[in-house]
Nucleic acid binder design. Structure first.
Length: 172
DNA sequence: TTAGTGATATCC
DNA sequence: GATATCACTAAA
């Protein structure tokens, strides 16, 4: 029996939500009713203005203002001109933090994941917690996880650069 | 290893 | 208006 994750799930610290999302199933229902599904294999936590790797650390801008929205909100942005990266807002309001969905079980890589699921900025500012076109399902799988430093954030200083805030599903 | 791609922030 | 940057990918 699949359970759709609700607002309470996202309304926790990103360091709790990020590992809990690994192993869950991300579903995107297209306008024609097709449902694209993929199990999440890897996430990263970005935590507030003091985390130098988090977009919010450089102050509030039009792009990243979504980080300050309520938990469960979808934050999509374009990176390197061609890749859409998908994030979920977590935690309490006015606390800019979120979780980056870095890979699925099949489609490994943040850009490939969104490409497969056909997620673009059209989904930005939607919500995973509403009756929307995007949601997560829990099918009961509790995978073994391992942690690692986050990827692609060399510009951040210590200690942020080496925080083990990347959560990866260990394959059987 | 490097090119490609374009929105965004930051500097004139 | 111009430029530098960027939580990446594919091709080689």
């Amino acid at each position: 029996m699949n359970r759709r994750l609700d607002a309470a799930f996202f309304r926790r610290d990103c360091l709790k939500v990020a590992p809990d999302l690994v192993g869950k199933i991300l579903v995107h229902r297209l306008p024609d009713g097709t449902e694209l599904r993929e199990r999440i294999a890897e996430t990263e936590a970005y935590r507030g203005t003091e985390d130098e790797a988090c977009h919010a650390s450089k102050g509030r801008t039009p792009r990243n203002s979504v980080l300050w929205r309520e938990s469960g909100v979808v934050y999509v942005y374009l990176c390197y001109g061609m890749h859409h990266l998908l994030n979920v807002i977590t935690g309490e309001p006015e606390q800019p933090q979120g979780v980056l969905l870095r890979a699925g079980e099949v489609h490994d890589g943040p850009g490939k994941l969104t490409k497969y699921l056909r997620i673009t900025k059209a989904q930005n500012e939607g919500s995973f917690a509403d009756e929307g076109e995007l949601w997560f399902e829990d099918d009961g799988l509790r995978p073994q996880l391992r942690t690692a430093p986050r990827v692609g954030i060399d510009y951040a200083g210590e200690p942020w650069k080496s925080k083990p805030w990347r959560f990866i599903m260990v394959k059987e």
